[in-house]
Design a protein around this nucleic acid. Structure first.
Ligand code: MN
Ligand code: MN
Ligand code: ZN
Ligand code: ZN
Lengths: 150, 150
DNA sequence: AATTAAATAGTAATTATTCTTGTTGACTTT
DNA sequence: AAAGTCAACAAGAATAATTACTATTTAATT
Protein backbone atom coordinates (compact mmCIF):
# COMPACT_ATOMS: atom_id res chain seq x y z
CA UNK A 1 0.00 0.00 0.00
CA UNK A 2 0.90 3.66 -0.02
CA UNK A 3 3.44 3.44 2.77
CA UNK A 4 5.78 5.93 1.15
CA UNK A 5 9.34 5.63 2.28
CA UNK A 6 10.74 8.99 3.33
CA UNK A 7 13.09 10.30 0.67
CA UNK A 8 16.20 10.03 2.80
CA UNK A 9 15.52 6.32 3.29
CA UNK A 10 15.33 5.85 -0.45
CA UNK A 11 18.67 7.61 -0.89
CA UNK A 12 20.26 5.37 1.73
CA UNK A 13 18.84 2.39 -0.10
CA UNK A 14 20.32 3.66 -3.35
CA UNK A 15 23.75 3.99 -1.68
CA UNK A 16 23.50 0.43 -0.41
CA UNK A 17 22.51 -0.92 -3.76
CA UNK A 18 25.35 0.88 -5.53
CA UNK A 19 27.90 -0.32 -2.98
CA UNK A 20 26.73 -3.89 -3.28
CA UNK A 21 26.78 -3.65 -7.06
CA UNK A 22 30.27 -2.12 -6.96
CA UNK A 23 29.36 1.00 -8.88
CA UNK A 24 29.99 4.61 -7.92
CA UNK A 25 27.21 6.86 -6.76
CA UNK A 26 28.32 9.84 -8.80
CA UNK A 27 26.99 13.36 -8.65
CA UNK A 28 25.04 12.78 -11.85
CA UNK A 29 23.55 9.49 -10.68
CA UNK A 30 22.45 10.98 -7.40
CA UNK A 31 20.91 14.01 -9.10
CA UNK A 32 19.01 11.86 -11.58
CA UNK A 33 17.69 9.62 -8.84
CA UNK A 34 16.60 12.56 -6.63
CA UNK A 35 14.85 14.20 -9.56
CA UNK A 36 12.93 11.05 -10.40
CA UNK A 37 12.14 10.43 -6.75
CA UNK A 38 10.48 13.81 -6.28
CA UNK A 39 8.70 13.66 -9.65
CA UNK A 40 5.34 11.99 -9.34
CA UNK A 41 4.40 12.32 -12.99
CA UNK A 42 6.46 9.47 -14.46
CA UNK A 43 8.82 11.61 -16.57
CA UNK A 44 10.71 10.52 -19.67
CA UNK A 45 14.50 10.60 -19.83
CA UNK A 46 14.30 13.79 -21.85
CA UNK A 47 12.11 15.53 -19.26
CA UNK A 48 14.42 14.54 -16.45
CA UNK A 49 17.28 15.92 -18.51
CA UNK A 50 15.42 19.20 -18.99
CA UNK A 51 14.58 19.50 -15.32
CA UNK A 52 18.22 19.10 -14.39
CA UNK A 53 19.69 21.46 -16.94
CA UNK A 54 19.85 24.39 -14.54
CA UNK A 55 21.65 22.51 -11.79
CA UNK A 56 23.77 20.37 -14.13
CA UNK A 57 24.16 22.28 -17.42
CA UNK A 58 26.64 19.84 -18.94
CA UNK A 59 24.67 16.69 -18.18
CA UNK A 60 24.40 14.59 -21.35
CA UNK A 61 21.09 13.05 -22.37
CA UNK A 62 22.99 9.83 -22.92
CA UNK A 63 24.00 9.80 -19.27
CA UNK A 64 20.38 10.12 -18.24
CA UNK A 65 19.42 7.13 -20.37
CA UNK A 66 22.42 5.13 -19.23
CA UNK A 67 21.86 5.90 -15.57
CA UNK A 68 18.17 5.12 -15.64
CA UNK A 69 18.86 1.83 -17.39
CA UNK A 70 21.45 0.97 -14.77
CA UNK A 71 19.00 1.78 -11.99
CA UNK A 72 16.38 -0.25 -13.76
CA UNK A 73 18.70 -3.25 -13.81
CA UNK A 74 19.47 -2.74 -10.13
CA UNK A 75 15.73 -2.72 -9.46
CA UNK A 76 15.74 0.76 -7.96
CA UNK A 77 13.69 2.39 -10.71
CA UNK A 78 11.29 0.94 -13.22
CA UNK A 79 11.06 1.54 -16.91
CA UNK A 80 7.49 1.90 -18.13
CA UNK A 81 6.73 0.94 -21.70
CA UNK A 82 3.22 2.16 -22.21
CA UNK A 83 0.95 2.08 -25.24
CA UNK A 84 1.99 4.58 -27.90
CA UNK A 85 4.47 6.30 -25.65
CA UNK A 86 8.17 6.70 -25.24
CA UNK A 87 9.78 5.03 -22.25
CA UNK A 88 8.85 6.58 -18.90
CA UNK A 89 10.50 6.10 -15.53
CA UNK A 90 9.21 5.48 -12.04
CA UNK A 91 10.92 5.48 -8.65
CA UNK A 92 7.88 4.45 -6.64
CA UNK A 93 9.04 1.24 -4.94
CA UNK A 94 5.60 0.07 -3.84
CA UNK A 95 3.72 -2.62 -5.75
CA UNK A 96 1.35 -0.70 -8.00
CA UNK A 97 -0.12 -0.33 -11.47
CA UNK A 98 -0.91 2.57 -13.76
CA UNK A 99 -3.79 4.56 -15.09
CA UNK A 100 -3.15 6.34 -18.39
CA UNK A 101 -5.43 9.09 -19.63
CA UNK A 102 -6.23 8.55 -23.29
CA UNK A 103 -6.65 12.30 -23.77
CA UNK A 104 -3.91 14.13 -21.85
CA UNK A 105 -1.63 11.08 -21.46
CA UNK A 106 -1.20 11.65 -17.73
CA UNK A 107 0.05 8.58 -15.88
CA UNK A 108 -1.17 7.98 -12.32
CA UNK A 109 -0.33 5.36 -9.76
CA UNK A 110 -3.02 2.89 -8.95
CA UNK A 111 -3.18 0.36 -6.11
CA UNK A 112 -5.27 -2.78 -6.52
CA UNK A 113 -4.46 -5.43 -3.95
CA UNK A 114 -7.34 -7.71 -4.84
CA UNK A 115 -5.91 -8.04 -8.32
CA UNK A 116 -2.40 -8.59 -7.00
CA UNK A 117 -3.66 -11.46 -4.83
CA UNK A 118 -5.96 -13.00 -7.45
CA UNK A 119 -5.11 -16.45 -8.74
CA UNK A 120 -4.19 -16.90 -12.35
CA UNK A 121 -6.37 -19.00 -14.66
CA UNK A 122 -5.68 -22.71 -14.92
CA UNK A 123 -4.82 -22.34 -18.58
CA UNK A 124 -1.61 -20.62 -17.63
CA UNK A 125 0.00 -24.01 -17.13
CA UNK A 126 -0.31 -24.66 -20.84
CA UNK A 127 1.70 -21.53 -21.51
CA UNK A 128 4.41 -21.03 -18.92
CA UNK A 129 5.36 -19.75 -15.50
CA UNK A 130 4.51 -16.16 -14.56
CA UNK A 131 7.19 -13.92 -13.07
CA UNK A 132 5.30 -10.66 -12.92
CA UNK A 133 2.11 -8.93 -13.99
CA UNK A 134 1.90 -5.66 -15.86
CA UNK A 135 -1.44 -3.90 -15.80
CA UNK A 136 -2.50 -0.64 -17.43
CA UNK A 137 -5.93 0.88 -17.07
CA UNK A 138 -6.73 3.34 -19.83
CA UNK A 139 -9.46 5.95 -19.73
CA UNK A 140 -10.25 9.59 -19.11
CA UNK A 141 -8.79 11.24 -16.04
CA UNK A 142 -11.10 13.30 -13.83
CA UNK A 143 -9.70 16.55 -15.13
CA UNK A 144 -10.33 15.61 -18.77
CA UNK A 145 -13.79 14.26 -17.85
CA UNK A 146 -14.67 17.63 -16.38
CA UNK A 147 -13.39 19.50 -19.43
CA UNK A 148 -15.35 17.35 -21.86
CA UNK A 149 -18.59 17.90 -19.91
CA UNK A 150 -18.45 21.70 -19.99
CA UNK B 1 -13.64 -17.30 -25.17
CA UNK B 2 -11.76 -19.12 -27.91
CA UNK B 3 -14.69 -19.21 -30.33
CA UNK B 4 -12.52 -18.58 -33.34
CA UNK B 5 -14.35 -17.16 -36.31
CA UNK B 6 -13.62 -19.06 -39.49
CA UNK B 7 -11.25 -17.09 -41.65
CA UNK B 8 -13.75 -16.47 -44.40
CA UNK B 9 -16.09 -14.80 -41.90
CA UNK B 10 -13.29 -12.48 -40.84
CA UNK B 11 -12.63 -11.54 -44.46
CA UNK B 12 -16.33 -10.78 -44.97
CA UNK B 13 -16.23 -8.66 -41.86
CA UNK B 14 -13.21 -6.80 -43.22
CA UNK B 15 -15.06 -6.11 -46.47
CA UNK B 16 -18.02 -4.75 -44.54
CA UNK B 17 -15.87 -2.52 -42.40
CA UNK B 18 -14.03 -1.12 -45.43
CA UNK B 19 -17.28 -0.46 -47.27
CA UNK B 20 -18.78 1.32 -44.30
CA UNK B 21 -15.63 3.36 -43.82
CA UNK B 22 -15.58 4.23 -47.53
CA UNK B 23 -12.11 2.88 -48.19
CA UNK B 24 -11.03 0.41 -50.80
CA UNK B 25 -10.12 -3.14 -50.00
CA UNK B 26 -7.07 -3.24 -52.20
CA UNK B 27 -4.93 -6.22 -53.09
CA UNK B 28 -2.28 -5.06 -50.61
CA UNK B 29 -4.74 -4.49 -47.81
CA UNK B 30 -6.30 -7.89 -48.27
CA UNK B 31 -2.93 -9.61 -48.40
CA UNK B 32 -1.74 -7.89 -45.24
CA UNK B 33 -4.92 -8.78 -43.39
CA UNK B 34 -4.82 -12.42 -44.48
CA UNK B 35 -1.20 -12.73 -43.47
CA UNK B 36 -1.89 -11.33 -40.02
CA UNK B 37 -5.00 -13.46 -39.67
CA UNK B 38 -3.15 -16.71 -40.26
CA UNK B 39 -0.16 -15.66 -38.14
CA UNK B 40 -0.64 -16.62 -34.54
CA UNK B 41 2.66 -15.24 -33.32
CA UNK B 42 1.84 -11.51 -33.17
CA UNK B 43 4.23 -10.38 -35.91
CA UNK B 44 5.72 -6.92 -36.32
CA UNK B 45 5.13 -4.83 -39.44
CA UNK B 46 8.57 -5.76 -40.67
CA UNK B 47 7.93 -9.49 -40.28
CA UNK B 48 4.62 -9.24 -42.13
CA UNK B 49 6.46 -7.38 -44.86
CA UNK B 50 9.08 -10.15 -45.06
CA UNK B 51 6.44 -12.87 -45.17
CA UNK B 52 4.72 -11.18 -48.09
CA UNK B 53 7.79 -10.40 -50.16
CA UNK B 54 7.47 -13.52 -52.30
CA UNK B 55 3.84 -12.95 -53.22
CA UNK B 56 4.07 -9.14 -53.36
CA UNK B 57 7.67 -8.24 -54.17
CA UNK B 58 7.01 -4.53 -54.59
CA UNK B 59 5.06 -4.07 -51.38
CA UNK B 60 6.51 -1.12 -49.47
CA UNK B 61 7.15 -1.38 -45.74
CA UNK B 62 5.44 1.98 -45.42
CA UNK B 63 2.27 0.47 -46.86
CA UNK B 64 2.37 -2.27 -44.26
CA UNK B 65 2.61 0.28 -41.46
CA UNK B 66 -0.04 2.48 -43.02
CA UNK B 67 -2.46 -0.38 -43.60
CA UNK B 68 -2.07 -1.84 -40.14
CA UNK B 69 -2.63 1.57 -38.60
CA UNK B 70 -5.75 2.00 -40.69
CA UNK B 71 -7.03 -1.41 -39.62
CA UNK B 72 -6.20 -0.54 -36.03
CA UNK B 73 -8.30 2.61 -36.28
CA UNK B 74 -11.13 0.61 -37.81
CA UNK B 75 -10.91 -1.80 -34.89
CA UNK B 76 -10.16 -4.81 -37.07
CA UNK B 77 -6.62 -5.37 -35.83
CA UNK B 78 -4.92 -4.33 -32.62
CA UNK B 79 -1.56 -2.72 -32.13
CA UNK B 80 0.32 -4.20 -29.21
CA UNK B 81 2.81 -2.01 -27.43
CA UNK B 82 4.58 -4.40 -25.14
CA UNK B 83 7.46 -3.87 -22.72
CA UNK B 84 10.77 -3.40 -24.51
CA UNK B 85 9.41 -4.35 -27.86
CA UNK B 86 8.58 -2.77 -31.17
CA UNK B 87 4.92 -2.55 -32.09
CA UNK B 88 3.30 -5.92 -32.76
CA UNK B 89 -0.01 -6.65 -34.44
CA UNK B 90 -2.91 -8.95 -33.65
CA UNK B 91 -5.99 -9.95 -35.63
CA UNK B 92 -7.56 -12.08 -32.90
CA UNK B 93 -10.96 -10.42 -32.36
CA UNK B 94 -11.75 -12.17 -29.06
CA UNK B 95 -11.28 -10.45 -25.73
CA UNK B 96 -7.93 -11.64 -24.48
CA UNK B 97 -4.62 -10.73 -22.90
CA UNK B 98 -1.01 -11.66 -23.49
CA UNK B 99 1.76 -13.72 -22.03
CA UNK B 100 5.28 -12.62 -22.97
CA UNK B 101 8.27 -14.88 -22.44
CA UNK B 102 11.09 -12.93 -20.86
CA UNK B 103 13.63 -15.21 -22.52
CA UNK B 104 12.52 -15.91 -26.09
CA UNK B 105 10.07 -12.99 -26.33
CA UNK B 106 7.26 -15.21 -27.64
CA UNK B 107 3.82 -13.66 -27.25
CA UNK B 108 0.87 -15.96 -26.54
CA UNK B 109 -2.83 -15.33 -26.20
CA UNK B 110 -4.30 -15.73 -22.76
CA UNK B 111 -7.92 -15.84 -21.72
CA UNK B 112 -8.90 -14.79 -18.20
CA UNK B 113 -12.61 -14.15 -17.83
CA UNK B 114 -12.55 -13.81 -14.06
CA UNK B 115 -10.21 -10.87 -14.44
CA UNK B 116 -12.30 -9.33 -17.22
CA UNK B 117 -15.36 -9.45 -14.96
CA UNK B 118 -13.62 -8.30 -11.79
CA UNK B 119 -14.63 -4.96 -10.32
CA UNK B 120 -12.14 -2.15 -10.18
CA UNK B 121 -10.97 -0.77 -6.83
CA UNK B 122 -12.93 2.08 -5.26
CA UNK B 123 -9.93 4.38 -5.54
CA UNK B 124 -10.43 4.52 -9.27
CA UNK B 125 -13.03 7.24 -8.74
CA UNK B 126 -10.31 9.56 -7.49
CA UNK B 127 -8.47 9.07 -10.76
CA UNK B 128 -10.85 8.81 -13.69
CA UNK B 129 -13.11 6.63 -15.76
CA UNK B 130 -11.73 3.40 -17.26
CA UNK B 131 -12.26 2.66 -20.94
CA UNK B 132 -10.21 -0.50 -21.27
CA UNK B 133 -7.74 -2.72 -19.47
CA UNK B 134 -4.38 -3.80 -20.79
CA UNK B 135 -2.79 -6.79 -19.08
CA UNK B 136 0.52 -8.49 -19.75
CA UNK B 137 1.77 -11.52 -17.88
CA UNK B 138 5.52 -11.94 -18.14
CA UNK B 139 7.43 -15.09 -17.39
CA UNK B 140 9.11 -18.14 -18.90
CA UNK B 141 7.23 -20.07 -21.55
CA UNK B 142 7.05 -23.84 -21.21
CA UNK B 143 9.60 -24.36 -23.94
CA UNK B 144 12.15 -22.09 -22.26
CA UNK B 145 11.39 -23.67 -18.87
CA UNK B 146 12.22 -27.07 -20.28
CA UNK B 147 15.45 -25.82 -21.85
CA UNK B 148 16.65 -24.19 -18.64
CA UNK B 149 16.03 -27.39 -16.64
CA UNK B 150 18.13 -29.65 -18.86
C1' DA C 1 50.70 13.36 -5.83
C1' DA C 2 50.52 9.48 -9.09
C1' DT C 3 47.83 5.46 -10.74
C1' DT C 4 43.94 3.28 -12.28
C1' DA C 5 39.46 2.22 -13.74
C1' DA C 6 34.89 3.75 -14.05
C1' DA C 7 31.90 7.17 -15.66
C1' DT C 8 30.85 11.17 -18.40
C1' DA C 9 30.22 14.66 -22.33
C1' DG C 10 29.80 15.38 -26.86
C1' DT C 11 28.89 13.64 -30.96
C1' DA C 12 27.78 10.09 -34.26
C1' DA C 13 25.09 6.09 -35.37
C1' DT C 14 21.16 3.18 -35.34
C1' DT C 15 16.50 1.83 -35.79
C1' DA C 16 11.53 1.96 -35.94
C1' DT C 17 8.23 4.60 -37.83
C1' DT C 18 6.26 8.38 -40.51
C1' DC C 19 6.31 11.79 -44.20
C1' DT C 20 6.80 13.58 -49.07
C1' DT C 21 6.17 13.23 -53.69
C1' DG C 22 5.47 11.50 -58.04
C1' DT C 23 3.00 7.30 -60.05
C1' DT C 24 -0.49 3.73 -60.50
C1' DG C 25 -4.73 1.83 -61.11
C1' DA C 26 -9.60 1.26 -60.12
C1' DC C 27 -13.77 3.46 -60.93
C1' DT C 28 -16.79 7.14 -63.12
C1' DT C 29 -18.28 10.15 -66.59
C1' DT C 30 -18.51 11.25 -71.02
C1' DA D 1 -13.67 3.04 -75.23
C1' DA D 2 -11.19 7.40 -73.95
C1' DA D 3 -10.56 10.83 -70.55
C1' DG D 4 -10.88 12.35 -65.92
C1' DT D 5 -10.72 11.70 -60.89
C1' DC D 6 -8.99 10.38 -56.67
C1' DA D 7 -7.60 7.12 -53.22
C1' DA D 8 -3.83 4.33 -52.48
C1' DC D 9 0.79 3.04 -53.46
C1' DA D 10 6.15 2.72 -53.95
C1' DA D 11 10.39 4.65 -53.21
C1' DG D 12 13.21 7.11 -50.82
C1' DA D 13 13.91 10.88 -47.46
C1' DA D 14 13.06 12.48 -42.91
C1' DT D 15 12.21 12.23 -38.02
C1' DA D 16 12.77 11.04 -33.34
C1' DA D 17 13.99 8.04 -29.55
C1' DT D 18 17.59 5.58 -28.00
C1' DT D 19 22.23 3.67 -28.03
C1' DA D 20 27.22 3.46 -29.29
C1' DC D 21 31.87 5.47 -29.74
C1' DT D 22 35.74 7.78 -27.98
C1' DA D 23 38.44 11.19 -25.89
C1' DT D 24 38.35 13.39 -21.44
C1' DT D 25 37.18 13.82 -16.61
C1' DT D 26 36.39 12.20 -12.11
C1' DA D 27 36.91 9.72 -8.02
C1' DA D 28 38.81 6.18 -5.41
C1' DT D 29 43.28 3.94 -4.11
C1' DT D 30 48.00 3.65 -3.49
MN1 MN E 1 4.07 4.60 -10.86
MN1 MN F 1 -3.30 -11.85 -29.16
ZN1 ZN G 1 -6.56 13.49 -18.90
ZN1 ZN H 1 10.30 -18.62 -24.15
Amino acid sequence: MKTKLPNQKQIEHLKDICNKAGIKLTHQRLAIFRELMISHDHPSAEIIHKRLEKSLPTLAIDTVYRTLSTFNELGIVKKLHLKNERTLFDANPDQHHHFICTRCKAVKDLYWEDFDKSTLPESIHNIGHIQFRHLELHGLCNRCLKESNL
